Amino acid sequence: MNYDIVFHVDLNDEAVLNIAISNIANYFTAIGGQKAEVVMLVNGPAVNLFKKETALPALKDLQGKGLQIRVCQNAMNKFSLPKETLMDGVQVVPAGIVELARLQNERYTYIKP
């Protein structure tokens, strides 16, 4: 079975982000160490939730378990966020929507909390 999954976060809403964090933590527990790529794709106003000074500590914990956080460069440009202002360990992708399409073509399961 393929356990690769992408969680899509696009709202500047900490409650939505907390749902995604909870879903991801539960996912890691449920698959019990089985091989999986787990990605959080961030675009739109949600990029504002990933600034170094305000990012939730739970995100760093999940990165330690294997979560990949990918942030949209287009959204960063729109909200005037240079890469240096983002939390450590995030990957910047040119266009979040294109990355979502690519991952879905690679058979990642799409989750929108």
Score class of each variant (00 low, 15 high):
A36G: 06
K52W: 00
K52V: 08
N18Y: 04
N26A: 08
I21H: 01
L41S: 13
A36T: 04
G33R: 09
E14T: 12
G32R: 14
S22R: 11
F28L: 09
I31G: 04
K35H: 14
G44T: 07
G33N: 07
A30Y: 13
K52Y: 06
I31K: 04
V47K: 08
V42K: 05
G44A: 12
A15G: 07
V9K: 01
F50Y: 08
V42N: 10
L11G: 00
N23K: 00
L41C: 01
V16W: 06
V38K: 07
N12Y: 10
V9R: 02
L49Q: 15
N43D: 14
A20W: 03
I21N: 00
N23M: 10
F50L: 06
G44V: 02
S22D: 03
S22M: 05
I21P: 01
N26W: 02
D10Y: 14
E14Y: 05
P45V: 12
G44E: 12
T29R: 13
N48M: 15
L41G: 05
I21Q: 01
S22K: 10
F50N: 11
N48L: 14
A36K: 05
A30M: 12
N43T: 02
I24K: 06
N48T: 14
V39E: 09
V9Y: 04
V39W: 02
Y27V: 08
D13I: 03
V38Q: 06
V39K: 03
A36R: 07
K51Q: 13
K52H: 07
V42P: 04
I19E: 02
D10P: 05
I21K: 00
V9A: 12
L17Q: 01
Q34N: 14
D13W: 07
I24E: 02
A30G: 14
Y27S: 14
Y27Q: 03
I21E: 03
V42Y: 08
I19G: 02
F50P: 06
N18P: 00
E14M: 13
D10H: 14
I21R: 05
G32K: 15
V9S: 05
N26L: 04
I19W: 11
T29W: 10
A25S: 14
V42W: 11
N26E: 12
A30H: 12
P45T: 08
V9D: 02
V47Q: 04
Y27M: 10
L11I: 01
N48H: 05
V47C: 15
A46V: 07
N23P: 08
M40W: 06
P45F: 02
I24Q: 03
D10S: 15
I19R: 13
Y27I: 05
V6K: 06
K52I: 00
L41W: 08
A20S: 15
H8M: 02
F28V: 04
I21S: 02
F28W: 13
A20V: 10
V39T: 09
K51H: 14
S22T: 09
E37D: 15
K35T: 10
L41A: 13
I19S: 10
V47P: 11
A30K: 15
T29Q: 15
L49H: 08
A36D: 06
E37L: 11
